[in-house]
Nucleic acid binder design. Structure first.
Lengths: 218, 218
DNA sequence: TAGATTGTTAATCGATTAACAATC
DNA sequence: TAGATTGTTAATCGATTAACAATC
């Protein structure tokens, strides 16, 4: 009935909308216009309306969007209305930091298993979870109905972990390792590569004002 | 002489090129073609050639690019040939994990000061650096010639920190807090927002295959 | 020379923005 | 009713890809 394919850029903005709407809801604000959203999120109001309209008619002309209703709808679209089980591999500093994050709960994303390639880490406790050895990955993924995997191992190990994820049946990967992963077409990879962000930030420091005269973008 | 403005998308890809070239260099590979790069990095070869050509003629027709020369050039473009001093605010799990990262050294990005809004954290040691109270921020930025700031505080505190960064003269911000920051036009903000990446990943899990038939993209 | 590969222009594709009728 | 704001179409803008002459 609606075979329109949604662009990646649109999907990427949905969590941004959701977060801000949650803030509004906490402040007991009941209605918001695309104008308001655009100002707060530095986006064009038309773009916001268009993004939302891909999924349905959520607003009321002359009025705006009901905050709580829109939250509910976006959560449905992103499938955050049911719990999504997540596995994390790599219990270094970053991996441990991510495990301790509590935000997942509200968004129904839950780290339910933790692995490390280093056998000496097996059995140690990390935020109520026992670190497991890699051999148990496939079993856990099946038994715990895990669909998403987070990679926080060194770059040199990341591809290997990705391969094991795919073999175990994982369909989505959030990759923190600074490397381009290769997987089969059905698997979705999102990169959370802050080192690249940091390096590209350097480009914009100081001396390039002369070149980028028409600056001020984000 | 070259008043062409470089698009954001181009700059974002430069660190990706650089990383892979570094790998090649370590393997003693001396020459690489845009074809090779494209295959390894999942990018169109024409795009890679065009990206590089914005900054100069780095390749040789019929031959390809000299790996070490290209590394040198990209490092110059990104200004990684001189040390860039970085400050980090927020010594929670994530902040501590970032401080312990060693990658910065190779890329000449160095965390030289660490702050926390919680006064009880002041004076504690974090990876050879003494955690400082926020009042000292502006002084440190000036004295240590810091141009980039990393924000790893909770979302509720992030805007305040960004304001203090701007007031202290910082020109680039890497923001890990899940919130859209507002600053003056001259300040560059890059978001390292893995929570958004994780939530948007959920969208692509399972039941949406039917809609996105033409899948397989990244 | 023949084969390979760049740098670059032109064509294509897709995403953003403007505009406005519909309507609350 | 008048004012506001959506949903959506059309216009614009920008980025990606294809194609190819130049040349190593």
């Amino acid at each position: 009935m609606k075979p329109i394919k949604i662009s990646e850029a649109v999907v990427r903005r949905l969590p941004i909308y959701l977060r801000f709407l949650n803030e509004l809801s906490l402040s007991n604000i009941q209605t918001v216009s695309s104008q308001d959203l655009g100002e707060k999120l530095d986006l064009n109001p038309a773009q916001i309306r268009k993004d939302l309209a891909y999924f349905g008619e959520f607003g009321r002309k002359g009025v705006g969007y009901n905050v709580d209703y829109l939250i509910e709808k976006i959560r449905q679209i992103l499938k955050l209305d049911k719990t999504m089980n997540v596995v994390l591999v790599g219990t270094g500093n970053l991996g441990r930091a991510l495990c301790n994050y509590s935000m997942y709960i509200k968004d129904n994303m839950k780290i339910v298993a933790v692995f490390d390639a280093d056998p000496s880490k097996s059995g140690t406790l990390l935020n109520h979870l026992v670190v497991q050895p890699m051999q148990e990955l496939a079993d856990s993924v099946r038994q715990l109905d895990i669909s998403v995997g987070i990679i926080t191992v060194p770059a040199s190990e990341a591809q290997k972990v990705a391969d094991e994820f795919v073999a175990a049946g994982i369909r989505g990967i959030l990759n923190f390792a600074p490397v381009v992963l290769k997987t089969s077409p059905g698997v979705r990879i999102h990169n959370a590569d802050f080192t690249a962000e940091l390096l590209s930030l350097a480009y914009y420091m100081d001396h390039h004002e002369a070149l980028n005269e028409g600056d001020g973008e984000r």
